[in-house]
């Protein structure tokens, strides 16, 4: 993807604070992220907080004629090597867990979707320091 002469690339950190389906926030953020990438900019981190952590479950089965929001994030991450980070504190409250954490907590399963990783709130601050622009998508 090339930019016209004189244009410059920007680094973005996005924060998603609402779960999929209940509100439009995650849809909007997806469209925005795709447009950022289409314009040749970089998304250095997408940080999921509050109910936004529910964007990272692999156990969602939406009706076939509806959009698949979680899978769309996963696919976008795969295509553009995005760093999708789920906040661990928010995730623990809401039952989003990876295999390692599930084992540590003695849970009988994990449910983190491919392309996401679980980490701490510091990732949001660090991402915002390193990015040229930070945008919050919330309910």
């Amino acid at each position: 993807m090339s930019l016209p002469l004189g244009a410059f690339w920007m680094k973005y950190t996005l924060m998603i604070n609402e779960g999929p389906y209940q509100r439009q926030s995650s849809d909007t953020a997806l469209h925005f992220a795709r447009a950022v990438l289409a314009k040749g900019h970089e998304v250095i981190r997408v940080f999921f907080y509050h109910d936004g952590v529910n964007n990272g479950t692999r156990l969602s089965v939406p009706p076939r004629d509806d959009r698949q929001i979680q899978q769309a994030w996963s696919d976008l991450a795969k295509a553009h090597s995005l760093d999708l980070v789920i906040c661990i504190a928010a995730a623990q409250r809401r039952g989003i867990t990876d295999a390692k954490e599930a084992k540590r907590q003695g849970l009988d399963t994990d449910n983190l979707l491919e392309g996401f990783r679980i980490s701490g709130l510091g990732q949001l601050i660090e991402g915002s320091v390193e990015a040229d622009r930070t945008l919050v998508f919330g309910g």
Partner: peptide, 15 residues
């Protein structure tokens, strides 16, 4: 549109 949205975030310093 969304691309215009992106342009606005580039033109402004913060959001």
């Amino acid at each position: 549109d969304y691309e215009g949205f992106v342009d606005l975030t580039v033109e402004c310093d913060t959001t």
